[in-house]
Design a protein around this nucleic acid. Structure first.
Lengths: 253, 253
DNA sequence: CTCATTTATTGATTTAGATCAATACAATTA
DNA sequence: TAATTGTATTGATCTAAATCAATAAATGAG
């Protein structure tokens, strides 16, 4: 792929994105668009070379030019504070959009890094914004995706603010499981593309704690873990973990 | 004001919102709109009666109809998990929009509650969405505000995931201070409209811890606290607290 | 005003998870 | 292949913050 630039033997018309034929259509930006409208969106979308593991499509502070839709692979986003400490703000799977947080300041508040070989579509934002003026369903879908991100973050806040280490890991595993299954992958077994360190960082825990949790979850028969390969054995028990837990404070709000 | 309903003696034309004359114009949705465009936005905005303390303009699960711009007072938003536990997702000050997280599912994922007497503008969302199709700067401002919320949440994540109790409280105080000062209030002294319990919940701490922190901050001469009234004495020291702290993990990402 | 109830502060004790430390296991590279 | 470096697991110890417990202020209702 990198050696003999085979793009040259592919007809130009094929290089153009075909969202219609993309398995992620219903999860991604073009949802709700058809016919000519969809073609207009496809016209502004650029497919780029796949990212190798560790590659960074954009860095914190970079001028905001485009948002990125993941086609395959996975990406983490993280911010680095003044003191150099890092906080991972998300793990992103195929069909998800990355970079929307850059609109506000017109530069990226976080860095994105491929956790494995990752292909993606690049959508120049100003063109998208203009086009969204003309296409109500594109406009709505964009707002919807952003709104979803806000909700997702709020859930994560709940996770970090209130939950125990067990519940945090259970939440992450269940989130990955359900998102992967929405994308046509197995809900019960998958490879974690991120390191234990990344998981710990994201969940606000120490690596050692994450490691111990995996061991314990396995001892409890909840999961089977072999390095990055995870099998969910008792989905319901994991779910129960994250809802039963926090004994409610009956008088509040 | 509350006794003799002076609204009745104000002409109907005045009841219509006048974003131009609103001190929050440059922080709020209409930023960038002028003349006829601004009037079109004002036409869809409804000013409602002020909320009394404890009133809830919308509840978790309510169908999504409108977003709310705070004019005066303050509001907290929170979600209630299945187990009844509550997580406060934000404190909202004048000029801020509440309810944008409802777009994604078409119903509100959180409840909003007035922390004090609070006046607000109600903006029916579908009309706003339509109008944003015609007005590029409105469209952009809406995306910008949503994007800002995503960034804000990411920062909060950093706060809850990584920081110590001291840093959390310092962050909240500085955030309130700077937001209040942007809104024309004093940056150095203000009343907290939320309870210690709310603060604890929001910061993911126990009430007792928050209480002890206020005491210690005061002992250290960082602030002067009298119940809900807070004076920031050493802004710089507080700032230093939140950046020096977390000794970076040099090898990561 | 008094009484009741919520909200806040302070102290004593416990604990979940961090940190420190050592080892084991992978993955790269030469 | 061994050597190097990064990543993961496991154990021992420590500590920040939770929890438990009691009191003290506020707030609000009658």
């Amino acid at each position: 792929m990198t050696k003999n630039t085979p793009e040259k033997i592919v007809s130009l018309s094929k290089i153009k994105m075909a969202c219609q034929s993309c398995s992620l259509y219903q999860l991604c930006l073009p949802l709700g668009l058809h016919g000519e409208d969809l073609e207009r969106l496809e016209d502004i979308i650029k497919r780029s070379h796949p990212l190798k593991k560790g590659a960074t499509p954009f860095h914190q502070g970079d001028k905001f030019e485009a948002i990125y839709a993941i086609r395959s692979g996975s990406v983490k986003t993280y911010t680095i504070a003044d003191d150099g400490s890092e906080q991972i703000t998300g793990f992103h799977l195929p069909g998800e959009l990355v970079g929307l947080d850059a609109i506000s300041e017109d530069n990226h508040p976080c860095t994105a890094k491929a956790l494995e070989t990752t292909s993606y579509c690049e959508i120049p934002f100003h063109q998208l914004e203009d086009l969204s003026g003309e296409l109500p369903s594109l406009r709505h879908q964009l707002l919807k995706i952003m709104s979803k991100e806000i909700t997702h973050d709020a859930n994560l806040l709940m996770l970090l603010g209130k939950k125990t280490a067990d519940e945090r890991l259970a939440s992450l595993l269940l989130s990955l499981s359900s998102r992967l299954s929405n994308r046509g992958f197995s809900a019960t077994e998958f490879n974690l593309s991120m390191s234990r360190n990344d998981i710990a960082n994201y969940l606000g825990l120490a690596v050692e704690t994450v490691s111990r949790l995996f061991t314990r979850f396995q001892d409890q028969g909840l999961v089977k873990v072999d390095g990055k390969f995870v099998q969910i054995l008792k989905n319901d028990d994991l779910k129960a973990m994250i809802s039963e837990c926090v004994q409610s404070d009956p008088k509040m709000a």
